[in-house]
Simulated scan of single mutants.
Amino acid sequence: MRRHLPLSLLLLLGAGAAGAQPAAPRGEAEALVAAERLAQAMVRLAALRSDDHLLDLGTAEGRVPVAAALAGARATGVETEPELLNRARRRAAEARVADKVEFREEDILRTRLTGASVVVMHLPAESQEQLRPALLRLAPGTRVISDIDGLPGWPPEQTQTVELPDRSLGRLRSQRLYLWRVPAPVDGAWCAPGGLQLAFRQSMRDYRATLGRGDAVAAQWRGRIEGASLPPPAVGRLRPWLIWSDGQLLVRRGIPGLPDGIRLTRRPAAGCTA
């Protein structure tokens, strides 16, 4: 079994091949240290699992994919510059994770995102906005990480400030990172057994729900989607806890009329049947 090295060793590994090379100018060395520090912070923010596949858009020298592989996940880096990709592949080989990392030369904005459970972007805001439709088609719960808050109208779930004390004077000594999770697409009407209907009005993570039968309303509430999970409000009356599952909504914790374990399906054109 491969033993995964702690992320704290990444900086040493990244510098391993440089030991026999002339020392980099001070400003360049500081930039490399900052880049390593940011790569490690992004991987920690992603909270990677062994079954994750991280896709790094604009990977440059491959620091984030290598860090992800050292943390136990699979990773793919996408870049447009062949020389940067050559450096990335050397980095993966030196870290002994070349079997877990792939690097591709592609147009970043045309890269297929399907299959990634984590997407890291090193892109300007306008490019992030171009990718938004494709990001929102990914599986609910997919994590999206960037160092730019470039998705207006989609508030990040988490932010983190990374201190960069090694940067030279006159440059920012910290960098903000942003984490989003793709929300389950629940907008519209859903059918439950017994003729009950659950209707959602969704705005990214936020939703309003109405449960009823015909014109009779049994319950209404507001909530916030957490990836594939729709937990109930923390206060007020008991409300169901729903989980997105293969295009259906599974009732994890039920209420009268919606018991635990049942599944809701999209309402067909003919409406919900009793």
Results as ranks from 00 to 15, higher is better:
234 A>E: 14
79 E>A: 09
200 F>D: 02
46 A>Y: 01
119 V>C: 08
59 T>S: 11
104 R>Q: 11
120 V>K: 00
84 L>I: 06
50 S>G: 11
24 A>E: 15
22 P>R: 09
148 I>G: 00
85 L>W: 06
67 A>Q: 04
21 Q>H: 13
135 L>P: 05
260 D>T: 10
274 A>T: 13
229 S>P: 00
223 G>H: 00
177 L>S: 02
12 L>G: 12
150 G>C: 08
18 A>V: 04
229 S>V: 09
172 L>M: 07
190 W>V: 05
225 I>P: 00
94 E>T: 15
27 G>W: 11
259 P>A: 10
177 L>N: 01
136 L>G: 07
39 A>T: 01
255 I>Y: 01
48 L>A: 04
114 T>K: 13
114 T>V: 12
18 A>R: 15
254 G>H: 08
241 W>Y: 13
268 P>A: 12
215 D>Q: 14
38 L>Y: 00
77 G>L: 03
77 G>M: 05
216 A>V: 14
83 E>V: 14
243 I>H: 10
82 P>S: 08
125 A>R: 08
200 F>W: 04
165 P>I: 02
170 G>A: 05
141 G>E: 03
25 P>H: 12
240 P>W: 06
54 L>D: 00
189 A>S: 15
70 L>R: 05
211 L>N: 05
93 A>I: 10
177 L>K: 00
45 L>A: 07
259 P>I: 11
253 R>A: 06
92 A>M: 07
11 L>V: 10
62 G>A: 05
234 A>C: 08
121 M>G: 00
